[in-house]
């Protein structure tokens, strides 16, 4: 292992940063998933269409990486993807009594550029739907949008902003994790609110309701994940 670390010093550093992003994008998979059948067909299609350009851009990036000088990039991509998937089954307790599961999608973002994650994210969501019975196939487009597009972009922006403002690294990480998480859940709440507007208050009121519901599970979870992120960061650095 140590030999590997030395030999791949630069590569390791790269990975380490990527890893921190992974935990800093704690898309809370299960709690945030819109279940199969919950969105009407036209909205399913709508979100597929909205996510499509990002997906296509991701594929373009993926091709570039595979044809770059990273040896066996496909294997590396798949290992990172498998890691992200398994991490998503790491159980954290949540207030609702059931367990929520943080999942990171950011490793590849830094390693292979931002676009790739939209493709790896789709694959992870596919595995979650078919191997874990979470999420769904018809809602894959909507989940893709909130978790692998909005979340990472917001998290990345927060991270960049914090670093530019010379905020301490661990606090930056903490904030990055929380905002990535929250932006994902705001998006999900929005996706549900436009489909199920409140009879009295319309979409706005529905948004408040869904945000409220998810906040119960998301706030403690985001804090737990922030802690986890900082701990893992310290563990990786101390090695």
């Amino acid at each position: 292992m140590m030999g590997a670390l030395k030999k791949y010093r630069k590569f390791m550093l790269f990975l380490a940063i990527g890893f921190i992003y992974t935990l800093a994008y704690p898309m809370t998979a299960h709690a945030m998933h819109i279940m199969e059948g919950m969105l009407p067909p036209k909205w399913c299609i709508f979100w597929f269409v909205v996510s499509a350009p990002f997906f296509i851009y991701g594929l373009y990036r993926m091709h570039k990486i595979v044809n770059s000088d990273i040896p066996n990039a496909k294997v590396m991509l798949a290992l990172c993807g498998a890691f992200v998937f398994v991490l998503s089954s790491l159980k954290l307790p949540s207030v609702t009594g059931s367990c929520s599961h943080p999942t990171g999608v950011g490793l590849g973002t830094v390693m292979f550029g931002p676009g790739v994650m939209s493709v790896l994210g789709v694959i992870v969501l596919l595995f979650q739907a078919l191997l874990l019975a979470h999420g769904g196939l018809t809602t894959l487009g909507a989940n893709e949008f909130s978790m692998t597009i909005v979340g990472p972009i917001v998290g990345y922006a927060v991270w960049k902003l914090c670093r530019a403002m010379k905020v301490r690294r661990s606090i930056s990480l903490f904030l990055c994790a929380m905002f990535a998480d929250w932006s994902t859940y705001v998006t999900t709440a929005f996706q549900l609110a436009i489909v199920f507007p409140d009879p009295n208050g319309g979409v706005g009121a529905a948004l408040v309701k869904f945000l409220g519901i998810y906040a119960v599970t998301q706030i403690p979870l985001a804090i737990a994940e922030g802690l986890l992120t900082v701990i893992v960061y310290n563990l990786v650095i101390s090695n």
Binding site: Y8, L15, F19, L23, F83
Partner: peptide, 10 residues
């Protein structure tokens, strides 16, 4: 999580 991450490299 850290140990799994090391598995990626190994």
């Amino acid at each position: 999580a850290k140990m799994l991450f090391e598995q990626v490299i190994i």
